[in-house]
């Protein structure tokens, strides 16, 4: 997973934010549209276009039967069942293409979220750094090294269920790298205070959730720590809710919209 995330980061860090992160609308428009078009072409290639057309036709025919013969109860029930069967067939035809398209679409979405969903902490914020230990590991001996310009404002509080928490304070805006240590194990984490919009790290983990937070490398699978995280503010996004919900909104609106609009010109049966 680490290699995959590193590869995706390498690719997307090059192609995203050509004009910097301030202009979020550019990437949030271009890449969902591009992903929608790409998905359309892949869909055309990997789906059973004839089968889909036939299933859609079948659904329409049986729905028409229901309308035309609405006084014939048995006929309506049979037509409804047949329409549902055709619908199931239609969904079945789409299952394969969905499996093929989901990973690349997810990758684009996750990278867009990493780049545009989060804002740096306000320069005067006092965020919590929360560390969850790997199962079976205690947190009471965990320590934290902070760089110059960053101070531990409160804590640590080490809970017996394996968490350790510090409250931090920065002297000036910037990206600060802290190091969490437990014996020989040491892991770093970047915390972004103030400054321009940029790719904001949220959490490092060695669970499946690492795929959702590609801004930093996942924790090693044998790490003493399961998760190291800070809560960060959502970025304000025009026309959509802030943060992740907003990026999802942009992505689905423009990828699905472009897919539907271009399906006929590109001769794709959806």
């Amino acid at each position: 997973m680490t290699s995959l995330i590193a590869f995706l980061n390498t690719v997307f860090d090059v192609i995203l934010a050509p004009f910097g992160h301030r202009l979020a609308a550019f990437d949030l428009l271009i890449w969902p549209v591009a992903a929608g078009i790409a998905a359309l072409l892949v869909y055309k290639k990997v789906s059973n276009q004839k089968g889909i057309a036939a299933a859609k036709n079948g659904i329409q025919v049986h729905l028409l039967e229901i309308v035309l013969y609405k006084d014939d109860l048995v006929g309506v029930l049979v037509s409804t069942a047949r329409a549902m069967a055709q619908n199931g067939l239609y969904l079945g035809y789409n299952l394969g293409p969905a499996v093929v398209m989901m990973p690349p679409m997810t990758a684009v979405l996750v990278e867009l979220v990493a780049h545009y969903a989060y804002a740096p902490l306000p320069a005067d914020a006092t965020p919590l750094l929360e560390v969850t230990m790997a199962p079976g590991r205690a947190s009471k001996d965990v320590t934290l090294d902070v760089p110059k310009g960053l101070t531990v404002d409160a804590g640590p509080v080490a809970t017996p269920d394996g968490m350790a928490v510090w409250r931090l304070k920065a002297d000036a805006p910037g990206d600060y790298v802290v190091t969490v240590k437990d014996g020989a194990d040491a892991e770093s984490k970047t915390i972004a205070f103030g400054g321009e919009p940029r790719k904001i790290p949220v959490q490092r983990t060695n669970t499946w959730e690492a795929i959702l937070y590609p801004a930093e490398a996942p924790l090693p699978s044998d790490s003493a720590f399961q998760t190291i995280s800070t809560k960060v503010p959502n970025r304000e996004l025009t026309f959509f809710p802030d943060g992740e919900d907003g990026v999802l909104g942009w992505f689905f609106l423009f990828s699905l919209g472009s897919g539907f609009l271009l399906s006929k010109p590109l001769g794709v049966e959806l």
Binding site: L121, P122, A154, P233, E236, F240, G246
Partner: peptide
């Protein structure tokens, strides 16, 4: 103590307040 609220900012009363509202 985490403080994630936006700093106090202002918006003209004839316009929708900035941020947060999104589609609404």
């Amino acid at each position: 103590m985490s403080r994630f609220e936006a700093p106090p900012s202002v918006a003209p009363r004839h316009l929708p307040p900035k941020g947060g509202g999104g589609v609404r």
